[in-house]
Amino acid sequence: MRALFAFVAGGLFGAGLFISGMTDTAKVQGWLDVFGTWDPTLAFVMGGAMIPMAIAWTLRQRRDTPVLGGTFPPPAPREIDRKLIAGSVMFGAGWGLAGLCPGPSLASLSYGGVGHWVFFAAMLAGMAIAPRLSLRLDRFVRAT
């Protein structure tokens, strides 16, 4: 049952990414290209996605447990650390270079062609080495 609802959630996410145009790297790069031909579509996608999600967070307050049992995620941590900034800057640079982030890279695998598989494979490799880099970063931050 948990897997079924996860599949439905993933399906909505994938369909939304496809319909919104966020798997089109030109639209994402167009949003970031403030000094070129700027494309505002991403703002509508983000705005549209925040509406059901904000309602969901409100509904979450009225429940003790999720519908399928288990526990809700803990309250959002408030700590802003260097890893959040450093990681997000790295992610942003890669996002601009290829015009893909993790969700759309997955949603476009079936129809995007070989370039999407190359990006996806490199992203998985990056995710595999990230825990080790993260540990080094921790040591570096403590040493400075």
Partner: peptide, 18 residues
């Protein structure tokens, strides 16, 4: 429209699966 679907997916994942 796509954004609303994305948010709906997130809402299902939060409220059903937690």
């Amino acid at each position: 429209a796509g954004g609303l679907l994305i948010g709906l997916g997130g809402a299902v994942f939060l409220l059903a699966n937690g």
